[in-house]
Design a protein around this nucleic acid. Sequence first.
DNA 1: TTGTATGCGTTATCAT
DNA 2: ATGATAACGCATACAA
Lengths: 357, 357
Amino acid sequence: MVRRVTLADVSRAAGVGMATVSRALAAQDHPDVNPATRERIRQIAKELGYRPSATARALRSGGYRALSAVVPDQTWGWWEPVIRGAFRVATQEGYQLLVHPIAGIQGGAAAVIEGLANVPTEGVMVFGSADDVAVRDAAERYNLPTVMIDDFAANVVLPTISADNRSGARTAVEHLISQGRRRIAILLAWEGSDYTDKRLAGYFDALDAAGIARDERLIIRCDDAEDESIPTWPRLDQVLEDDVEFDGLFCIADLLAAPALRSLRAGGRSVPRDVSVVGFDDERAAQLLDPPLTSIRQPYDSMGERAVHLLLRSIGGEQIPPSRVELPTKLIVRASSSHAIGERLAPKKTKASPTSR
Amino acid sequence: MVRRVTLADVSRAAGVGMATVSRALAAQDHPDVNPATRERIRQIAKELGYRPSATARALRSGGYRALSAVVPDQTWGWWEPVIRGAFRVATQEGYQLLVHPIAGIQGGAAAVIEGLANVPTEGVMVFGSADDVAVRDAAERYNLPTVMIDDFAANVVLPTISADNRSGARTAVEHLISQGRRRIAILLAWEGSDYTDKRLAGYFDALDAAGIARDERLIIRCDDAEDESIPTWPRLDQVLEDDVEFDGLFCIADLLAAPALRSLRAGGRSVPRDVSVVGFDDERAAQLLDPPLTSIRQPYDSMGERAVHLLLRSIGGEQIPPSRVELPTKLIVRASSSHAIGERLAPKKTKASPTSR
DNA sequence: TTGTATGCGTTATCAT
DNA sequence: ATGATAACGCATACAA
């Protein structure tokens, strides 16, 4: 309620017309105003603590171009590079990009969208939501063009952008095979979500194509994948203890790989010598692990770009059918899967004596 | 440019007055409208693809309450929990919180603030910026209340929130001392930034208080701290090779700890048996490391909360002097520094080595 | 170069 | 229960 000082106030104080004030205060120097007056007016405006009303300005100049992104608060990090890509394109198209964290809002993404009714935004991209339908309903209430990014829902009711999880997983496993691995385990979590299904399917694709028999014992489930502080995966520990033989491990998410690496080390397996490990997502932590984790990088940038483009088309009046756009992933090879890199990284590992070389 | 359908359009199509339409479309069911008409109007509005103009709505109903956060794109992650805290308070106070990534914008934070002139926002918090002065100037141009969060600048020109880096560092080192460590090294980077200075000072504080002599050889500098893919820290490797004796390591950022742990392992040192390691920041990756990293958690939540409160006071017209508010940190003990935890984590390490070697 | 007046799309106040 | 109309704060077309 402190938005008191208006153009009119300044105009009165300066003893000039509103138009002059408006011109004097314009962002890029307006030609039709006496430099002296401009300075004087700016001075007065400043003294008065005048702040332009972005609202009025936007209203007057035909809406103010902004897009919204609703981001989750569970797994932080992965959506950040997507925002970056989206941001770039949006800026380029003359749009602002507003980011709205869900951050424990009752009702999740849908509720945030309801709140968007009072935010001047023309379209919204929703990250990693499961309640697709609720989101769509909320968006429809306000005729708000909406795009989903990486939602878990098995069947889409809105245009959805995601990585090509199936072929990405296939690439990961094929990489393991190319390293001479034949007994390849998979570490699973979040079953029922679309991406888990797809990544599991990709795993099978690769095995089948290589003529490697599937083995139920090598499908390992993480019990409490939400607990990021878990030291090791009990099921994996069990497999190691039972001496079920395997020489490759595909973790369907980088997040699962950290405890897995600890399990392997605790179980006396050296990575990558005894077991090659590949993750999925290539999140920031991947290269911080020891050894640095080979992973499948999601096309974060393009996901953001595509989302914005789709949104803009939708804003432009085009009807975008609900379908899943799957963008290609990329294999990032690091030491956890590659002997060559692995050796180079830890040359002194077996020596265990400080004074080598 | 598709904002064609307005209240007037709907009113015309429905053959009723604008006021009725407005009432029918109101968020919480307006009492003064016939339920039948309401339904009819809503139907028509939907068919027409009517979307209320948040701008006009905000203009009419006296500004729309929003705060902005300008976040960096370099180090992703750390600001996220701060946003969460800020978001909670903002929501509670009836404010929207808009997040604006810098994401490669020419001119950095200051430029983003310039762009904010067209965004209906009442105050802005800027994360981790170095160009304090530019930010202040930009903010002043628009009389935009501004708060900095964790800026690097050595002297503040705006109210600034940060963690108490000095006492946090002291706590970290005291923890090492409490573990029986006496020869404690520090791993440094970004010298000249305020937080590095403070953390180094805290390190000295702890040593001095414990009567441990400072040793130049134990002050280790990371050369290219920006390169997150670096396998190990060359300077640290050198120290290890030279057999400079130390049994504790304080990394002034978690980020530095990952390569450090690899250096130690490559150098044949066991963590925490031979060397106890503590980081700073407690970012997500900390507990993914092997061993999980003891760290100093910044009070992210409260930082966000304080920022919002400060901003609201400033918006309320109060004059907030430029000063640094330092919030207390918290020691999070994990396996990298504690024998007890370390043992518990890797019980089989020495026992079961079926295939390796 | 400056001033006056109009309208952007809503909601609120008054009539009806 | 509904309709007409006046603001909200600004930018501009037009007049001076």
